[in-house]
């Protein structure tokens, strides 16, 4: 008797699970990004630094992945040229779900600059 009641419920639960927000990754299309954004969560500088460092470590063309601090410079310390830097910034953009304007992107020389910019633009597009 209750079977007909429970079965739709199960279907609903299954659907709900499938639409749970999924972390954005390179493989995921943009539309699966979670609609909920906790703006205040990323204004802590240490946390941003940690996330930026994690992205840099995951980036495969860096030559000194062991010791990355907030003072690390992309060109001098990581051996990235301007094109590599652009790619790294794209990776950071995807991780934080933000956009660096072209003018700003050219000015970002190191971890510190990047963290500073992200901290100052919590809801930038």
């Amino acid at each position: 008797m209750f079977k007909s009641v429970f079965r739709p419920c199960a279907a609903v639960a299954k659907n709900a699970r499938m639409t749970l927000p999924v972390r954005n990754s390179i493989l995921m299309p943009q539309m699966m990004v979670s609609p909920i954004r906790f703006y205040s969560a990323t204004t802590d500088r240490n946390e941003i630094t940690q996330r930026v460092v994690d992205v840099i470590k995951a980036f495969d063309r860096t030559n000194a992945s062991a010791d990355i601090s907030s003072k690390t410079l992309f060109h001098k310390d990581l051996g990235l040229d301007s094109l590599d830097t652009v790619e790294l910034l794209v990776a950071i953009e995807e991780d934080f779900d933000i956009q660096f304007p072209d003018k700003v992107a050219d000015e970002l020389k190191g971890v510190e600059d990047t963290v500073e910019w992200i901290a100052n633009h919590p809801e930038s597009e």
Binding site: I26, P29, Q30, S82, L83, V86, E87, L89, V90, E94, D102, K103, A105, D106
Partner: peptide, 17 residues
């Protein structure tokens, strides 16, 4: 230089899609 780097960025982003 900014224009060229911006173009490169567009290429990378679209390729990632």
């Amino acid at each position: 230089r900014t224009q060229v780097l911006g173009l490169y960025k567009q290429f990378i982003k679209n390729a990632n899609n």
